[in-house]
Design a protein around this nucleic acid. Sequence first.
DNA 1: CACCTTAGAATGTATAGACATATGGCGCAA
DNA 2: TTGCGCCATATGTCTATACATTCTAAGGTG
Lengths: 236, 236
Amino acid sequence: MTLSLHERIRTDIESAILSGKLAPEDRLPVEHELMQTYQCSRMTVNKALSALAAAGLIERRKGAGSFVGRPHAHSMILDVPDLPVEVAKRGHVYGYQPLVRKLRAAARGNAEEEFLAGGRRLLQLDGLHSADGVPLAVERRLVSLAAVPAIADADLEKEPPGTWLLRHVPWTEAETRISAVPADAEIARLLKTPAGTACLLVERQTWRSSERITAVRQYFLGTAYHLVARFGSSRP
Amino acid sequence: MTLSLHERIRTDIESAILSGKLAPEDRLPVEHELMQTYQCSRMTVNKALSALAAAGLIERRKGAGSFVGRPHAHSMILDVPDLPVEVAKRGHVYGYQPLVRKLRAAARGNAEEEFLAGGRRLLQLDGLHSADGVPLAVERRLVSLAAVPAIADADLEKEPPGTWLLRHVPWTEAETRISAVPADAEIARLLKTPAGTACLLVERQTWRSSERITAVRQYFLGTAYHLVARFGSSRP
DNA sequence: CACCTTAGAATGTATAGACATATGGCGCAA
DNA sequence: TTGCGCCATATGTCTATACATTCTAAGGTG
């Protein structure tokens, strides 16, 4: 793979930073110096530096210069895979068992549900995910019929609603809360575990430009499942 | 805030995609059309489209055109903030209490520790994070002295080692595992909670181009802490 | 010594043109 | 009809230049 010139400049500086040769707050060579070093025009240097700035590796200050940015630990890439895919990838047989399918109005006084419903009704979909027949997670989901009327006719016996939504409804924004909670009586019964067992609770809301689509709570058996987040070179 | 021309083109297309006006796989106007629309040069249009491609919103194919990319649901941005900063942001007083500081060799037979040590010794650093004096998390950390010799002389009485490392050691890759576990006897004692309480376990390893730097296990009181991951337009 | 002004330095944005390279469709020939 | 080759199309890269904007530091003034 032959790199273009601006890519070469970019990777040169990138590796100088990542190897520690250039430390945070250090000043980079100014554009005219890099022009001489690489014998190229300023636009080419500018493209390389702008890309590094967009990636957050350096900070550029008009009139002052370019500086190595502080290492930012605050954001990583979290893998949130589709459960059937993830279970299959680990070599197990995935199973989904619907438990509740209820068309209802938003609970009075529950601001979150009322906002999700948007005046219309909600579809409540609870179910149990399993791997090789062993319970893995309980899911409690609400879908806004205002945003996704088509789900009323969907076949959700075998396919979990999350997978169906992923395929049929493009969403643009999502927020996931991750915490640990003890299993209450019903969760414990469904997961076939003693009450109070540590569970990984994943709460996710997705919406499309201010129109709420779905809210879901997934209770994972703490010892049987984990999430992985990465930060690094591998960007698919 | 007045946007520059290439930023305006970029945000125009971005909002067309996010609002659904442009669906995945749709073809974008070619560069010459956008030049006419915005009455500007090709480089300006190119800059806008290249930025969108770098952000993964569109895909560009040489000779073919530019196309709206598929929404990738499998990766989200996980906030992994520095604990002191996060606690302060919530309006509490952060505290750190060192518990163990031990220079030792890697445990025999523990492949993970031996790899981290790289032939030299490890520094074990355990401590307790608290908010307003209330225990928040127990941290058990190992630092490779081969990779970070300077930490042997660092003052880690008030500042947690994670914060010290963040400021002094640039790392390039990290992996975080998130799961839920019951508190064992010692964790429970330190967190002042009954044994078996659900804890959020965050395990993180960081390294710099194949040289391991540190491995840490943080046990958060399940009810007192949660992680948040986002996917969406908001990119700071 | 403190404060203000100013010139230079460095980045931000934009233009017009040139050549390179991958793609896909159309027409021609077997 | 099928397969091949060519060419228009579209993006990728780079140059040289111009002017705008912002920061820094030097130097002069009170």
